[in-house]
Every structure is written in structure tokens, then in C-alpha cells.
Design a protein around this nucleic acid. Structure first.
Length: 684
DNA sequence: GCAAGGTC
């Protein structure tokens, strides 16, 4: 009979605990122990109909609006093992080990949301344990931290007094109850005659869609408002303007003329040419802040055309093989042990990812990047360094993922090594027009790129020309800026920075993005074109029907999380926080119904469109005769092109203002596969 | 079929 059964969140954590304590079982500080591990959540809430009494099953199976809002008092909040091959086996193993233990130690990940406590208690309740339960709080998974945490156990045997569990538990019920909004939106849209799979709504999904929708609308409604402003330009091209805060409408109105003639009139007030006067030249430095979270990795690699799904899967496989660190970390920094490992491996990694080892001179940890506490540490190369980039292929199920794996490794390698580079040094030059000192300019001159030569997002900053001596007055034309297209990077950043809490963790954002952008998913609501997002038709319906709702507002998460904080501190009953979802449903249901008018306005009436039959021509694809459309857009295939395509060759033809290159390939539309001309810009 | 949160 061991004194403790130590329950970790996942296998890798169990391995680290074993390392720290001297084996998967044994004795530590005079306490005997056995280590077991979960695999994330092993339990999840049962389907709504399986949580209510028999007479209510029909009502809670239904997606029809008349059956909502739900009465949450009808729910038993029963949990079931998650679907997965080895879940039940894991549970019974844990149960068996617990039966030969005197107490359970919760050793799951220690993060402020309480998710670790929740998944531990789900298991403890599922195995029917009612003995002693302790919690340990490790800052990271180094032996030192684990040993220290295991010497400071807290008795949490009464789960109703474990604030971290209570808050995470109410979060999970709240989110579960929010699925009513998906049922409502789906039913309203289907009942109106549109064909859709599911019109998803949720406090993360709805916000993501709403943000993309609003940006698409802003681009559509953008009206260019040109203005004309008097500035000076020197003989080297530097422009001197009056400095006004972006939101100071009054001052802006004074210097920006909507009428060009007015600006030209103002121009007459100034003598020209005039003289340039350099005010100062300051030396400045920036230190590397390059470690990435998963969302950022996704956003950066999207530009190369990889899907969120591919990045998620390939990254996971590299992690399981030890080539990269734990993907779903929330850490933005690393510990000194993790830093030392990076320093030790730095030369090998540098050779692999093409970094000059002479740049890796900053081997003293910077206090902003290397801290005492970081469970997994920020994303970086793993402990195992491959002998070559091709070796990464050994970790992959699908060899077609090799280039993606190499790109992930190189990005992680470069961003991690950059923290071993010296600060970027540059000079800030400030100058004004001597005769009119209100007109000024400022620019940076790189002095030493240092860490930026190891990793730099985008292009290295270039040195502008030196200041000129003389400047002439000009009328410069400008305009209100057009909103840029919604990208993954833009969306992730907005989600992370919203309010006090942000919305979703980096890992959840990334996996939700993978779900929403995957054509195979039931929730294919976003299209991803090299990181640029657009709404699919269902995505557009989902965003439009949710206009003005609470679920599509980031405030829903903010309120929920504020409530969770209060629950964790025993200042608020969990029931009160859970009830707030009723307010959301009651508020949003009539809005969803009203917004159907907007859906019809946006999408058009749900009529079955009659597509004109298209002319077909015969070609050969991989030796088999097939038919393709006789036209591609407005281009009709010539006999020569058809011969080339049939031979499996790539062809190029003029189209509108440019050229199109491509060949025959497989395409899929609404589950139906066929052969068609595939332009190179469309290839996966 | 649905959420969001873990995990592989």
C-alpha cells in the first residue's frame, strides 16, 4: 500500500515526475508513492438528453427553438468517459492503483483557469474515490521544482472547498449550456429553407466569426476620403510634416484639406526652398522578444500555405518524437534550466537552421525572457536535436508533411536562438525644417542587426538615405487608411489582447481555427488563403444571425471569467455564475430570430439555383478518359491546350490581365470528387 | 450535429 497516488495530466508529466522522484513508484522523503497519468480530460458532460429524466428526453433532444431556453435545474451534470480508444482502460488503471494507495495527490498542470483541478476531480469522482486528496503546485517540471512542490502539499479533500475546481467546473457547465445557441441558430436557418450542416455559435467561435465579418464589412463599406496636406520634402526624399495625434480630429481638420486648391493656397504662405536642421541622433537598442506561442507559429507559417490543421498535426508529431517542446504551452518565457539546455544545443541547432554560430554570444539569460517559473516553457526546439532536417521525417506519419515539419523546426530554432543574440542597435534621427520647426521627421538607422540576423519577422530594416540639406514645400495627397484584410495573425492578436482575460488560450484558438478552416469539418465556417481569412457561406450566416448578440461579444467571456474569479475566491456561488448563461440565451434568442431578415438580405432567398448545363470536353487523366468543363472562367480550352493537359503537362495561358499556370488534378466539391483544371495558385 | 477545455 503506497502512501500517495500521484495523478499527472499527461504521460510526459508523469515521466518528469518519475525522473524527479526516482521512478514511477518508490519512496520520496520517507513517503511511498505510485505515479499515474491522465490524458487531458478523461470525462466530459453527457449529451443533454442523457442528463435529464425520461419524460424530458424528447425536449432536450430537440433543436427546435420552442424547447429553449433550457431549465438548467433539469440537468444532472452527469459525466461520461470521453470518446477515445484507451480512455476507459486508463480510468480502470488509475482506479486500480488508487485502491492500493492511501491518498491521491493532484499533480496536474497548474494554471489559473483551474482546468487541471477540474480534470483531476472528474477522474477522482469517476473512480469513486472518497479518501484523502492533496494538491501540489509545481512551477515547472524540473526535478527541483517537483521535489519542492511535493514537500508542500495542500489538503483539498473536500472538493466543495477547492476554489480552482469550482471555478473550472462552472466554466464547463456554462460553455455546455451555450450550445443552445448553436441549436437555435441552426434551426432558424434550416426552418427558413437554407441547407446547412451546423451554424455554430459559442463564446469563442461566434467572436472569431464576428470579428472577421465586421472587418469584411469595413472593407466593403470603405469610402476613400482623400486629403491634401502641406508638407516639406528634402533633396534625399525625407518628408517633414506637422505632428498631430491620430484621434485629434480638430487639429487634423486644420492641416488636412479635402480640397486640393485650399492646400495649394496654404502652400503660398511658406517660403521654399528651406533648410533642414538635424535636432538629435540617439542611440537605441531592442532586445529579442522572439519566443512564440502556437497561434503565432500558425499565423506565420500560414503565409507559406500550410493549413492550421496541418500545422497542428505535424507539430504534435514532432513533439511526440522529442524534436520540439510542448506545443500547447501558455508560457511566453523559459526557465534557466530550459535556457541552459538551449545554450548547450545552440550550435547544433544553428547549423541545422542556417544560423551563423558567431551570432550566439549572449549566453547570459535576460531576466525578461528567462524566469523562475514556466511549466513547459515557450515553444522552442526540443531536447532531442535531429542530425539533419530530413531526420524529422522519422517522426511523421505522412511523408508529404516533411517540408512543413522542416519549416516548423526552422522557425522554432531561429526564434529560440535569437534570444542568444545581442541587442539590435539603431540610431533614431530627428530633424525639422529650420524656418518652420513645426514640420519634422524621424527615422531609424540600423547600427548592428545582431539578433535580427538570427530571426527577424519580415524584412530586415533598411537604412534610409541621410538627411538632405534643403527642402521644398509640397502638397502631399493622403487618404483615410483602408482596413487591411482579416488574417489569422490579426485575429489571434485581437483574441489574445481583448480585455483583462483575452478569449481562449493560444492553443484553443489555434485548434478552433483548425476546425473552422478545415473543409472536412462540420464547422467549416472560415476559408484560409495563406493566412488571409474569409467567411464561408455558412460562416457568413453564422456571423449575420449573431449580430448584436451577447454570445458574439467578447464581453460574454469577460463576464464569465470575472464570475469564475469570484467563485475561486469563494465570493460568489457557482450557481449564480451558471445562471448568467440563461440571461445570454434569453437575450439572444429573439435577436437570432429577428436577424433572419438580415440573413435573407445578405445571402438571398433560399431558392435552389438552377445552374446552366456546362459544355464538356474529353481529356485523359492518368491514362483514363474523363470530361472537364470546356471553359475555365472565360477561357475556352484550345485543342493544343487539351492535348498538353491530357499528356499530364502544365500549361500557361493568358487570362484577363495576367497569366494562369496549372494542370489537371483532383478536386472536390460538396463531397463529390472529380477531375478538373487546377491552377497553381489553388494547389493545397 | 451542438461548447470549450484538456489531450494524442
Amino acid at each position: 500500500m503506497a502512501e500517495y497516488m500521484i495523478l499527472t495530466e499527461k504521460k510526459s508529466a508523469a515521466d518528469n515526475f518519475a525522473q524527479a522522484l526516482g521512478g514511477m513508484s518508490g519512496s520520496f522523503d520517507g513517503h511511498s508513492y505510485q505515479i499515474v497519468h491522465a490524458q487531458g480530460h478523461l470525462m466530459e458532460l453527457a449529451e443533454p438528453k442523457d442528463q435529464v429524466s425520461n419524460d424530458l428526453k424528447d425536449r432536450y433532444s430537440s433543436w427546435e427553438p420552442e424547447n429553449m431556453p433550457w431549465n438548467l435545474a433539469d440537468f444532472s451534470w452527469k459525466k461520461e468517459p470521453t470518446k477515445g480508444s484507451n480512455i476507459r482502460k486508463l480510468l480502470s488503471q488509475i482506479k486500480k492503483v488508487s485502491q492500493s494507495s492511501q491518498a491521491i495527490v493532484i499533480a496536474t498542470d497548474n494554471d489559473p483557469s483551474g482546468e487541471g483541478e477540474l480534470l483531476a476531480w472528474e477522474i477522482i469522482n469517476a473512480i469513486g474515490w472518497d479518501g484523502k486528496v492533496y494538491r501540489e503546485y509545481h512551477d515547472d517540471e524540473t526535478p527541483k521544482s517537483i521535489v519542492k512542490a511535493m514537500r508542500n502539499l495542500k489538503d483539498v479533500s473536500d472538493q466543495s472547498q477547492d476554489g480552482d475546481y469550482l471555478k473550472a467546473n462552472v466554466r464547463s457547465k456554462w460553455d455546455f449550456a451555450s450550445m443552445q445557441l448553436t441549436r437555435l441558430a441552426t434551426s432558424y436557418i434550416r426552418n427558413a429553407g437554407y441547407y446547412v450542416k451546423v451554424v455554430n455559435q459559442g463564446r469563442l467561435k461566434s467572436v472569431m466569426l464576428s470579428m472577421v465579418y465586421q472587418r469584411e464589412q469595413a472593407i466593403k463599406n470603405y469610402v476613400k476620403k482623400p486629403y491634401f496636406e502641406v508638407k516639406f520634402q528634402d533633396d534625399q526624399g525625407h518628408v517633414y510634416a506637422r505632428k498631430v495625434a491620430k484621434d485629434d480630429e480638430e487639429q487634423l481638420a486644420k492641416i488636412r484639406h479635402s480640397d486640393k486648391a485650399m492646400a495649394e493656397q496654404e502652400l503660398q504662405q511658406y517660403q521654399s526652398p528651406v533648410h533642414v536642421k538635424r535636432l538629435k541622433m540617439e542611440n537605441k537598442r531592442n532586445m529579442p522578444k522572439t519566443l512564440l506561442d502556437l497561434a503565432k507559429v500558425d499565423a506565420l507559417l500560414s503565409k507559406k500555405g500550410y493549413s492550421s490543421n496541418q500545422i497542428k498535426n505535424v507539430y504534435q508529431q514532432l513533439y511526440e518524437a522529442g524534436y520540439v517542446s510542448y506545443p500547447r504551452t501558455e508560457d511566453k518565457v523559459i526557465t534557466s534550466e530550459q535556457f541552459n539546455e538551449l545554450v548547450q544545443n545552440s550550435k547544433e541547432i544553428a547549423l541545422l537552421v542556417g544560423v551563423n554560430v558567431k551570432l550566439l554570444t549572449h549566453t547570459a539569460p535576460r531576466k525578461e525572457l528567462v524566469k523562475d517559473s514556466a511549466t513547459h516553457g515557450a515553444n522552442r526546439p526540443g531536447s532531442k536535436v535531429p542530425a539533419s532536417l530530413d531526420e524529422l521525417g522519422k517522426a511523421l506519419k505522412n511523408k508529404n508533411d516533411l517540408q512543413c515539419a522542416k519549416d516548423i523546426y526552422c522557425l522554432l530554432g531561429r526564434t529560440a536562438l535569437a534570444i542568444l543574440g545581442e541587442d539590435y542597435l539603431y540610431r533614431v534621427v530627428t530633424a525639422v525644417i529650420e524656418e518652420y520647426p513645426a514640420f519634422g521627421t524621424q527615422y531609424n538607422v540600423p547600427a548592428n542587426y545582431n539578433y535580427k540576423q538570427i530571426y527577424c519577422e519580415g524584412e530586415l530594416p533598411k537604412a534610409p538615405k541621410p538627411l538632405g540639406k534643403q527642402a521644398k514645400s509640397i502638397v502631399a495627397e493622403g487618404a483615410n487608411p483602408k482596413p487591411s484584410k482579416p488574417t489569422k495573425a490579426w485575429l489571434f492578436k485581437r483574441l489574445a489582447n481583448y480585455g483583462k482575460y483575452g478569449i481562449g488560450t493560444g492553443a484553443t484558438q489555434q485548434s478552433t481555427m483548425a476546425e473552422l478552416t478545415s473543409a472536412k469539418s462540420n464547422s467549416h465556417l472560415l476559408k484560409d488563403t495563406k493566412g488571409v481569412l474569409s467567411l464561408t457561406e455558412t460562416g457568413l450566416m453564422s456571423a449575420v444571425i449573431a449580430r448584436g448578440t451577447m454570445i458574439a461579444s467578447p464581453k460574454a467571456t469577460e463576464q464569465l471569467f470575472r464570475g469564475m474569479d469570484a467563485v475561486g475566491a469563494f465570493k460568489l456561488e457557482p450557481q449564480k455564475v451558471l445562471n448568467s448563461i440563461n440571461t445570454v440565451i434569453t437575450h439572444d434568442k429573439p435577436l437570432l430570430q429577428q436577424n433572419m431578415a438580415l440573413v435573407e438580405q445578405t445571402i438571398g432567398k433560399p431558392e435552389k439555383k438552377q445552374y446552366p448545363k456546362r459544355d464538356k470536353v474529353d481529356v485523359t487523366y492518368q491514362g483514363k478518359p474523363v470530361q472537364i468543363n470546356a471553359k475555365w472562367g472565360e477561357h475556352t480550352w484550345t485543342q493544343g491546350e487539351l492535348t498538353e493537359l491530357s499528356a499530364g503537362n502544365t500549361i500557361t495561358f493568358d487570362y484577363k490581365k495576367g497569366q494562369i499556370t496549372g494542370q489537371l488534378g483532383e478536386r472536390e466539391y460538396k463531397g463529390h470528387k472529380f477531375i478538373a483544371f487546377v491552377p497553381d495558385f489553388d494547389k493545397d
